[in-house]
């Protein structure tokens, strides 16, 4: 159904006033026919409701308010967040110009155009292979570490007894800087793939473990009480109440674990590798090629951001039900009346 036209007029006026305030050029006027909210039930206009009081009058008014708020939010959210790119692009421009102008030595800080050139030259020399190797290591190690983290976190988060037995030990292990494991891993597992994957897994394990265990432990007792009224079995309690309630913390843990997995991949490849982005970094250092080092850094930034965005996307899909600042616009917002 369409938003009541009076609502639109008010919002239009408000928006134009705001534009005038910040000096925005005039925008196209909204088309009421496009402001449709298929997921909402028909709601009479606010004016009609005040004339004809009904049983659920106050609540329907709240519905109308949320309708218009949702519509405006959808308008604001249309289009892609281009603002995020502005700063990096500006920095690249300044960088390029200052190297060209001779303020910075190009040998130490090659300009972005040189780095792009390097990347293009690396293409036929197996750049994709390096990227694939590193990505495969991250995914394998992360999968291993995250799976163990979920298992251990669930055990400790769901059972007070196992928490009493295990949590202090896990906390102690967590206190060890993960890189301190490197010599031991090299001694035990040799210099091949195994120590690299193990290191990445260790790095990913602890954030996931922390997220999962605290997520389960912090589930609202009041919701568990509701579940008890229905005599849910233990598995049903976990599946229907504890897991969804813990999901925000679990996903935060998974996301933190993934970024640490990238970090430890680089550490592992810096120590000993013949392929991968870490190898490119080492190669660049040994041959004195800053452009190669920067190219590898750039690729790491891109890959890290890409994988993080993937998890973030999953997060926003799975957690749209949350009533938080972040999800304000994800669905139409909470009504502002009681």
């Amino acid at each position: 159904m369409a938003v009541p036209s009076t609502e639109i007029d008010v919002l239009q006026a408000e928006s134009e006033a705001l534009d005038a305030l910040v000096g925005h050029p005039p925008r196209r006027r909204w088309n009421p026919a496009l402001l449709v909210c298929a997921d909402l039930p028909p709601v009479a206009s606010v004016g009609e409701l005040t004339r004809e009081p009904t049983r659920a009058q106050d609540e329907s008014q709240a519905g109308a308010a949320s309708l218009s708020a949702g519509a405006t939010q959808r308008l604001n959210r249309q289009g892609w967040n281009w603002q995020g790119l502005a700063l990096p692009v500006a920095l690249l421009l300044v960088w390029e110009l200052s190297v060209r102008a001779g303020w910075v030595a190009a040998r130490l800080l090659p300009p972005p155009s040189d780095i792009a050139q390097t990347l293009i030259e690396l293409g036929p020399q197996g750049l994709l292979g390096h990227i694939a190797t590193s990505t495969a290591r991250v995914l394998t190690g992360y999968g291993l570490g995250a799976a163990l983290g979920i298992a251990a976190g669930a055990l400790v988060g769901l059972s007070r007894r196992s928490a009493a037995w295990l949590n202090p030990s896990f906390q102690a292990l967590r206190a060890i800087p993960s890189l301190a494991w490197v010599p031991l891993l090299l001694l035990w597992l040799g210099i091949d793939e195994a120590p690299k994957l193990a290191l990445i897994a260790i790095g990913a394990f602890f954030p996931v473990y922390m997220g999962v265990s605290s997520g389960f432990r912090d589930v609202d007792r009041k919701l568990i009480e509701v579940a008890r009224l229905y005599r849910l079995s233990a598995t049903a309690l976990v599946a229907r109440v504890l897991l969804p309630a813990a999901l925000p913390a679990v996903l935060t843990g998974l996301r933190n674990g993934l970024s640490l997995a990238w970090m430890f991949m680089v550490a592992a490849e810096l120590i000993a590798a013949t392929r991968g982005l870490g190898y490119l970094l080492t190669d660049g250092r040994e041959t004195g090629r800053a452009d190669l080092v920067l190219a590898a850094i750039l690729l790491l930034a891109l890959l890290g951001k890409l994988s993080d965005s993937a998890v973030q996307w999953a997060e926003s899909r799975l957690l749209a039900w949350r009533d938080t600042f972040d999800t304000l616009g994800a669905l139409n917002s909470r009504p502002n009346a009681s």
């Binding site: 509701v226 849910l232 999901l247």
Partner: peptide, 30 residues
């Protein structure tokens, strides 16, 4: 002994499961 489906309970706060729709909250009964 213990809880039973013969007794319904409405708390001071709604205590709805925030991840379930209104319909799924009402039909939470396993």
């Amino acid at each position: 002994w213990g809880t039973t489906r013969d007794i319904g309970f409405v708390f001071q706060e709604p205590r709805l499961f925030p991840w379930l729709s209104v319909a799924d909250n009402i039909a939470f009964d396993p």
